[in-house]
């Protein structure tokens, strides 16, 4: 069987990176180890906690359940790409203000997820909590809770996370 030559690199936070040699490398391990982007967290490594959530081509995914080699040509945004300590994103600021975290380990995943999630609502994508499958979707607390349920927080900061996201959603709507 031929070995694939990856001509197109993967773009992470607007920087091109060569793909790993070992096809077993998950996108998560690639980010954390090969790219030094440890903001993306490994909580379960099996798509069961959401700590590894990153945004690929505009969509949030669990980076632990994707192989890095499958992503040549893709554009990945991690928590480091959303904002920095000097210039945090509105969502990052809202999490800080509302204390939407405690230990901080699930936080980058929550923030990546929330950032993509608000775009999904803006695009009127329905969820399990949507009363109707068509028509405009509003970022109600119940909609946000359902859509964020793929991001576990064991410290139990959920109520504050919803408050943080709601504030950003209201800001977006205004």
């Amino acid at each position: 069987m031929m070995k694939l030559e990856f001509i197109v690199p993967i773009t992470i936070n607007n920087t091109a990176h060569p793909l790993p040699d070992d096809p077993r490398t998950s996108l998560l391990d690639f980010l954390r180890r090969d790219c030094g982007l440890t903001g993306t967290k490994k909580g379960c490594d099996h798509g069961q906690c959401g700590a590894c959530t990153v945004i690929v081509n505009g969509q949030r995914i669990n980076s632990c359940l994707s192989l890095a080699v499958m992503h040549d040509g893709d554009s990945v945004t991690t928590i480091e790409g959303l904002g920095t300590p000097d210039a945090p994103s509105p969502m990052q600021k809202a999490f800080l203000e509302h204390d939407g975290f405690q230990c901080g380990y699930c936080t980058p995943g929550q923030i990546c997820s929330a950032t993509a999630m608000l775009q999904e609502i803006a695009n009127n994508m329905p969820s399990d909590a949507s009363e109707s499958l068509d028509g405009p979707i509003k970022p109600t607390p119940e909609e946000i809770r359902e859509r964020m349920s793929g991001n576990l927080c064991r410290c139990g900061a959920y109520a504050n996370i919803i408050a943080a996201i709601s504030e950003v959603a209201e800001g977006d709507a205004a």
Binding site: G83, F95, L96, G104, T107, P108, I111
Partner: peptide, 12 residues
Amino acid sequence: ARSEGLAKVTGT
């Protein structure tokens, strides 16, 4: 707000 909060929300 938490003094280490900015580091946590930015993944640093």
